[in-house]
Computed example of a mutant assay.
Amino acid sequence: MRVAIIGFGGIGRGYSAYLTAQGHEPVIWSPSGAALADFAGDATLTTTGKLEAAVPPRIARDCAEALARAETIIVAVQANGFKTVIDAIAPHLTAGQTVIISAHCSFAALYLHRLLKARGIDIPVAAWATTALTARKSGPRSVHISGIRAKLDVATLPVRHAQAGLATCQALFGNRFELREDVLAIMLSNLNPPAHVANMLGNLTRAERGEDWPNYGSITQGVGRIVDAMDGERLALAKAFGLSVRSVQDHYVHSFGVAPGPVGEMAAAVYKNRPELLGPKTLDTRFITEDVPFGLVPLQALGRVIGLPLPLHEAGIALFDAICARNFRAENDLLPMLDLELLPAAGLHRELRGE
């Protein structure tokens, strides 16, 4: 299958290598243009970790070239790049294509769906709760793939295309997907914001000083209780919308195979198996710059729509606004485009299902 990968950071590189190894034909568009410079001539992409390979990536000069003849488009950028990328790809999408948003947050699928609906284009937009693999750039022309997820939640907008979206995901990445009710369930299944925000709060000065600190090994009992309490707000929000989503404990069991228990104990068990995973060495990290504006802020917005306060989410936003001297609500460039305050809760949920 010809697949356009939008974004060429660690995840985009990992997808490119993985799909090539599976016999597919990925073509990459790097919105920043950096990939064209890094892979000029016959340069190859070297992968280590879960996939050892050296593959020649195909780099598109622009968005239109990447999407031409592509059967599937995978959006693999951080959330603060969603709007820019969606605005770029929407005019070039055509009937018969499928879009995958990896990983989905902050109403990105709804924003794309509205743009396509205005053009009269009805195609599946599949949203993943997280990425299909974990990877990081290890050099200008290399990537280290540290994990390939055994299970991954997916939903498609509109829901009438759910089976088509699922089939495309399986054709590319195998039988690792579990179908969820709708895109709202995917939004409410993102566990990164509470985990990352709590861990950054507990290890703030270590990150700011650039120290080495273990990611999971630093989720102590106290940090774990913050994660658990924020998770309670997320679960209550899902219940208010009539949805059932995994708890943070379920996620640890599901993703890492550790025994259930308090979050701090489960994180300690993960740390024993993955001691090499370090926390950020800066406050300019996606743990804050992505997870606060595109994780906490949208959930608080959903809470306002349905009349459910999320005090810990609100406190997290306010604290990191103060810590970073930024206005993270203002940094979410998707929410102002959606006019959520004009929709009742039931109407918003119906639109998130494409009904």
Rank of each mutant, 00 (worst) to 15 (best):
V3N: 03
I5E: 02
I6K: 09
I6V: 15
G10H: 04
G10E: 04
G14C: 04
G14P: 04
Y15Q: 11
A17D: 03
Y18A: 14
L19N: 14
L19A: 15
Q22V: 01
I28G: 00
W29V: 04
S30Y: 07
A34F: 06
A35R: 09
L36K: 15
G41T: 07
G41M: 10
A43E: 14
I59F: 10
I59R: 12
D62W: 08
R69P: 00
A70L: 08
A70V: 05
V75G: 05
A76N: 05
A76T: 07
A79G: 10
N80I: 06
I86S: 03
A88M: 06
T94D: 08
Q97G: 02
T98Q: 10
V99S: 09
I100W: 11
A103V: 12
C105S: 15
L110Q: 10
Y111L: 15
L112H: 13
L112V: 13
R114I: 12
R114M: 10
L116V: 07
L116W: 08
R119C: 08
P124S: 05
A126M: 12
A126C: 14
T130C: 12
T130A: 14
T131M: 15
L133I: 01
A135Y: 08
K137H: 02
G139F: 04
P140Y: 07
V143F: 03
I145F: 05
S146P: 01
D153R: 12
L157Y: 02
P158I: 05
V159F: 08
G165W: 02
C169F: 06
Q170R: 15
L172F: 02
G174W: 11
E178N: 14
L184I: 15
M187A: 14
M187N: 13
M187T: 11
N190M: 12
L191Q: 13
H196S: 06
L201R: 06
G202N: 08
N203D: 03
L204V: 13
R206E: 02
A207Q: 02
A207S: 14
E208R: 12
E208F: 09
G210C: 00
D212S: 10
W213M: 09
N215T: 12
G217N: 00
G217V: 06
T220A: 09
T220V: 08
T220N: 11
Q221V: 10
G222D: 11
V223H: 01
V223F: 06
I226P: 02
A229D: 11
G232C: 06
L235H: 07
A236S: 07
L237S: 01
A240I: 04
F241L: 11
R246K: 13
R246D: 14
Q249W: 05
D250T: 05
Y252C: 05
S255V: 15
G261S: 00
G261T: 06
G264P: 06
M266D: 01
A269E: 11
V270E: 07
Y271V: 09
N273P: 00
R274D: 13
L277H: 10
G279H: 02
P280Q: 01
T282N: 05
T282H: 04
T282R: 03
L283H: 11
R286F: 09
I288G: 04
I288W: 03
V292P: 03
V297M: 04
L302S: 08
V305N: 12
L310T: 01
H313R: 01
G316L: 08
I323R: 08
R326G: 04
R329F: 01
A330I: 00
L334I: 15
P336E: 05
M337G: 00
L340G: 13
L343S: 13
H349D: 14
R350V: 12
R350P: 00
E351H: 00
R353P: 01
